[in-house]
Design a protein around this nucleic acid. Sequence first.
DNA 1: CGTCACCTCACCAAAATAGGTGATGCGACA
DNA 2: TGTCGCATCACCTATTTTGGTGAGGTGACG
Lengths: 218, 218
Amino acid sequence: MNTPLIRVWIVEDHDTFRRSLQRLCTPSRGLAPARAFANAESMLSGLRTAPEEEKPEVMLLDVGLPGRSGLDIISDLHQLAPECRIVILTVFEDEAKISQAISAGASGYLLKTARAEEVAEAILEASQGGSPMSPKVARSVVNLLAKLTKPAAQPIALSPRERELLALLVEGLTAKEIADRLSVSIHTTSTHTRNLFTKLGVHSRAAAVARALRERLV
Amino acid sequence: MNTPLIRVWIVEDHDTFRRSLQRLCTPSRGLAPARAFANAESMLSGLRTAPEEEKPEVMLLDVGLPGRSGLDIISDLHQLAPECRIVILTVFEDEAKISQAISAGASGYLLKTARAEEVAEAILEASQGGSPMSPKVARSVVNLLAKLTKPAAQPIALSPRERELLALLVEGLTAKEIADRLSVSIHTTSTHTRNLFTKLGVHSRAAAVARALRERLV
DNA sequence: CGTCACCTCACCAAAATAGGTGATGCGACA
DNA sequence: TGTCGCATCACCTATTTTGGTGAGGTGACG
């Protein structure tokens, strides 16, 4: 099967680096000749005027550009070309930047230490729905995910009923609604609530909810 | 520089697959002959009796084992060998499993479709503090991270004061405490709170806190 | 068998909240 | 200039929440 060449656009302010990125987009690697831009604005206006069939499948995006931060243009990019896969190409390897880029919608994240071959492979991988990352980035991403999903050190010993009640508290129900939902009297829910407060070390429903959500008790 | 060979242990119940994993640990790849186990229990008891200098640097762990789920042994493993990097090796590629494994402390996650060379590289990468992942896994991890960090679609138009108040609500403060903190009268906080409820479409502080935390309004 | 944790229900009082109305002053915007 | 959003303060009442005490029944555990 003769797959069509992948359309790649490049945004990179450094002249020499931009040219070498452009050079690595060769038909032998499955890539069409790339359009390259020195800044985000010109790329976006190019995108606005481009007919649908010329829009890129993969965007190689340097962040750290003068002017706009590079990350906030990702949402514009997503608007103009929803199908386009975005691969960040940058010198920044801090978790904050990486996290911002990914939550903005980037699929890949390469450090500029990557060699030409790696960049070309990343473009192919991205175009196939993958998420190419430099090893250091992969490490950060896994770290971030671990941080965000790890449960509390000691999940606090709640009785089943208390856990149930806590879940309903988090839904914002009143004592009466909770009583109905659990088919018990309002006095019972009240008792449970107070016991729950003691265990959680709080003095209000709001604080209990905050604790529950923050420590993933629900 | 003559780097010492990396100590690898393997847990894999399939005999043939276990042997082929063992076979790929060769000095030419920088790997010491691996100890292999057919189940997690024997690996853990082996770990308990092993002297510190023989403990593995990288553990190749099959999840989907009979008996224990494979994921809950990661915490035990972490206890016994905190320095050991854990690489999951499995057929499961659903986001739930991946997320669980990573939050339990796995550094790498390979699908069993990986070739021997890829596994060997992954071991090296893991031992150097990296996070080797199969492409599909990388995709899932990025998706997960995007899901967890993306802000609400339309963050609801709150006035600055209301945002401030919401943050204090989330801390579980009472109206009076909030009034003190903001240096206004309790009546003012009360008014703000009511307006806030209207905007958030809730009828209780608990629900407001739940909404705020869930939609990352704070 | 005693004890303990859990779930259930009840009564009580002080405190806080929910929800409404109204009023003032300020700055922005057309 | 008028209007509007915002922040501020006030008064009102009904309802809810908080916090205490007590108490009956269950099942598990030693």
